[in-house]
Amino acid sequence: MFTWSGDYNWLGDAFNGLHYQQDVYQALKTGAALKAFMESAQPTSAKRILMSQSLGNMVACEAMRQGLSVGKYFMFNAAVASEAVDGTLQNANAAVKSKYVPSDWSDYDSQSWAANWHKWFNNDATDSRGKMGWPNYFSTALARAGTVYNYYSTGDPIFLESDTVPGVTTGVFHWPTLSLSWPFIDFNITAEEGSWQKQETHKGVEPIAGTLLGGWGFNCWYETVGDEPVQMYYTATQANAMVANGSITNSPVFSYGGTQLNNRNASQDDIWLSLAKYVPAISSPIGGMAALGLEDHNLNGTSYRDGWGRQDNVYNQNWLHSDMKDMAFFYVYPLHNELVQKGMMK
């Protein structure tokens, strides 16, 4: 069991989820330690079996990106953008765009988005900005695993998505239901719902569970019109023209002040911080979809359960984020049986 400080908070345990981007940063920073640990614990790479849950997959993928090889890698409820393992999944279609690109930006050429800033520089290996993008960030990582298994759940509330970019309270409040035990009413507040989509789409624009730099914020400045200072930012027409002639590299359209997004000499630590806090993913998480194409296993179906121990007012009998451990073994043993079989751990 490998654990790390992945639940940053300064407001108390009740608000852990509000610092998700900081948690991503800490996960990325921890990859090297996991690599060192596994290599010392098991020198033969083919014998290494790596299992990670949720954001632990960020640690695992970063460890493999840095060179850790494993025989088998099991991803559970992976809180990693699918575009990180398959770049073609970034902004793959209109539905994805509707879910992950705020309407303010929909008329702006995608090359002007913070999410694609890295593409202007990724031909130059010495330019740190070229490494500040999620597409294919972990593609070499997965190549270092003999076999990769993705156990995802289409019923995972953390990864549930609205059809359009959500607000802070989207999906949080549901109609209350009456119950037969105290307090006789279930308020059905689900603060965790849609967390993934929110933490990506709120980068740069939302102080609660988001960040206020980079991301989907606009680079703004003031100009004096008459005697009044007026806030200015590039219009879509201006931005698209800058994309066409390449001059956008001198004038980012997104909010980059106070970040290292435009520093070609940024350190590895800055790159991780930028990815975690300022560069939005434009794709669903691996933990919510069949991202790999092979060995994708939907936990939310009937295969991995035998009966179910919970009838939730909001999520019915969904397989929730941590049900592989939270739900009694009595109900989820088919999953564990399969893991023993696929991991050849008997």
Partner: peptide
């Protein structure tokens, strides 16, 4: 046939 984790046909 599997060339890698991302190139395959089953």
């Amino acid at each position: 046939s599997k060339k890698s984790n991302s190139v395959f046909r089953f």
